[in-house]
Design a protein around this nucleic acid. Structure first.
Length: 545
RNA sequence: GCCCCGGUAGCUUAGAGGUAGAGCGGCGGCCUUGUAAGCCGCAGGUCGCGGGUUCAAAUCCCGCCCGGGGCUCCA
């Protein structure tokens, strides 16, 4: 630890002045005071102390206010509660059985351990030619290569076909740019002023939307005619969002200033209906995590007074999802919701990142200007369930981090098959085998398999090496032997280890059947790059690992 | 936004005041290849940008930009 002195402060808005104090501290070294300031009421006192410290040149670290929440508990699937003792949190019994939850608890309760390594997915996203930093743009605006764009699009397809469509949401589209002085915009963006992109055009101030839905959808619905017969209904907005995240926070796909957010807002006539939708969305998001093969822990934040009334619902969801959860009980209502849940992906670096979330807003929608006409002919506000499937970039972050974790078990890292940009790579031993390979590729393509053909004049060893480097799930080598037998020699990545390949002889039909089975009814898109390796561009040339 | 570290060819990097080096990749040729990198040759560099110190700066100093890590925050 560089500083001998700490101020524990809940006031991030004092950061600027704190930074100045810190700068002075570098030239002078002083006392050994540790100050803990937790109460809201200490704001002025804190300012005064800061002035004093500034004069003395004492260094400062701002820490998360430990008095923020009332308490943390773990609720297991049997309904048993375990209160977390902040001092001896590791003693908690359930945590010993659920390592992912334990990591989440550590991060939330005692803070993340510092690590000097970049998260694993940053190298992977470049190596697999998925995404990259874009020097011409602002920090946190990534560019996506064809393979990354394909995954991005498939995740969008999943959101639509597997979540939005079954839940019968109405899909809408709304602008990214809004007038800064419009009351609705002022209210939403005012709270997060520091993170809003602002621009001036012809002397008019504009902001870029920081989230999907909240601006455009609410405005749209405030002008709509809604009857009690229409309730409940859900609206889906898939939009690019802009948040001026702090520079040091934008690392790879973990957090960006530009990202795509699939959001669902559900409007219900009472809170029983709200709870029902809350539950449905929760199960949909749980299926998303499974489909993406993301390792996650379950977190909930509940306003204390509401917890007894909502515990049954929480428990039912935990049972169905079969996961215990960390529940943070909040002393009061800080946001518009009284309860929210969060699917927290745990990265290979031991960090957590929220993917999906469902938020139950039991206040009615009047403050958003959204009303429906009830049976009695009176205008009434409805209950809103706010939810986000989770930004596509975050989903990609979590998929890559989970994939990398396989290495720790001696397995090879890989993406879920339905998301692998290239599912099969066909390698001819020499030129005279090329014709047969093309034939096989065409059969595979007809059966919705993404297949690449390494038609370059390279040795088999090299072609296999490169296929493995690209995490290709199935590598097929075709030579005289295969021409004769009519079978394929297939290396399956899923069953191979770092030390040994898992090889199997199979017919084209068997390979197709296996791939179709594993992909199930997940969305499909063809490859975004040419089938032939000789025709492909190298976006991120390899310079050795 | 602040603190620490870094930026040399497309990529990974060596060089720490005195003529810019390598590996991989690329291109050309040879090889027709049997499961983690075939052989030879060629091209490729305002040493992140700007200013300063010096006879001389990739190298030292200042500012900026970009990247990584950390703190803080996260609708």
């Amino acid at each position: 630890m560089r500083y001998k002195h700490k101020v524990i402060s809940p006031y991030s808005n004092l950061n600027k002045s704190l930074s100045m104090v810190r700068r002075i501290q570098f030239r002078k070294f002083l006392n050994h005071k540790i100050l803990k300031i937790i109460s809201e009421k200490c704001k002025n006192l804190l300012k005064m102390i800061l002035e004093d410290l500034k004069r003395e040149g004492i260094g400062i670290i701002v820490r998360k206010n430990p008095g923020r929440s009332l308490k943390f508990i773990i609720l297991d699937v049997n309904g048993k509660e375990y209160e977390i003792d902040v001092e001896n949190w590791e003693e908690c019994e359930v945590l010993k059985k659920f390592p992912l939850l334990k990591i989440l608890v550590r991060n939330e309760v005692v803070g993340k351990p510092p690590k000097d390594i970049e998260p694993a997915h940053v190298k992977v996203m470049r190596k697999l030619e998925l995404a990259d930093y874009e020097p011409m743009s602002d920090v946190g605006h990534l560019r996506f290569y064809p393979n990354g764009t394909l995954i991005h699009d498939l995740l969008q397809d999943f959101a639509f076909w597997k979540i939005v469509h079954p839940l019968k949401c109405m899909k809408v589209d709304t602008p990214a740019l809004y007038r800064a002085n419009y009351p609705r915009v002022k209210e939403l963006c005012g709270k997060f002023d520091a993170r809003i992109y602002k621009l001036k055009v012809d002397n008019v101030e504009f902001v870029l939307r920081p989230a999907a839905g909240d601006l455009g959808v609410f405005e749209m619905l405030s002008k709509a005619t809604i009857s009690w017969k229409n309730l409940p209904f859900s609206v889906y907005d898939y939009s690019h969002c802009y948040r001026l995240e702090q520079r040091g926070e934008c690392t790879g796909l973990k957090r960006n200033r530009y990202f795509w957010m699939p959001d669902i807002h559900s409007f219900c006539k009472d809170w029983e209906e709200g709870k029902k939708i809350f539950e449905e969305l929760s199960y949909a998001y749980s299926r998303l995590m499974d489909a993406l093969n993301i390792e996650y822990a379950f977190a909930w934040r509940v306003v204390k007074d509401w917890y007894p009334k909502l515990k049954d619902l929480i428990l039912r969801i935990l049972k169905n999802v079969n996961k215990p959860a960390l529940i943070e009980l909040l002393p009061g209502k800080k946001h518009y919701w009284v309860m929210k849940n969060e699917w927290q992906a745990i990265g290979s670096d031991g960090f957590n990142a929220q993917i999906s979330t469902v938020q139950l807003d039991l206040e009615n929608s009047e403050r958003f200007g959204i009303y429906y006409i009830d049976k009695d002919g009176k205008k009434k506000g409805c209950i809103i369930v706010h939810s986000s499937i989770g930004s596509i970039e975050r989903q990609m972050y979590a998929i890559l981090e989970t994939a990398v974790k396989r290495e720790k078990e001696g397995k090879l890292p890989m993406l879920p098959l339905w998301l692998s940009p290239e599912q099969v790579r066909v390698i001819p031993v020499s030129e005279r085998h090329l014709e047969k390979c093309v034939e096989i590729c065409e059969i595979l393509e007809k059966n919705k398999v993404r297949v690449g053909l390494d038609d370059r004049s390279e040795t088999v060893s090299k072609k296999v090496f490169e296929a493995k480097r690209s995490w290709i799930p199935y590598i097929v080598v075709i030579g005289d032997k295969e021409l004769k037998s009519g079978k394929l020699s297939v290396v399956k990545r899923e069953l191979s280890t770092v030390k040994k390949d898992y090889k199997e002889e199979m017919t084209v039909e068997e390979l197709i059947r296996e791939i179709r089975e594993k992909c199930g009814d997940m969305p499909f898109r063809p490859m975004y790059v040419p089938r032939e390796m000789s025709k492909r561009i190298s976006f991120v040339p390899w310079g050795g690992d």
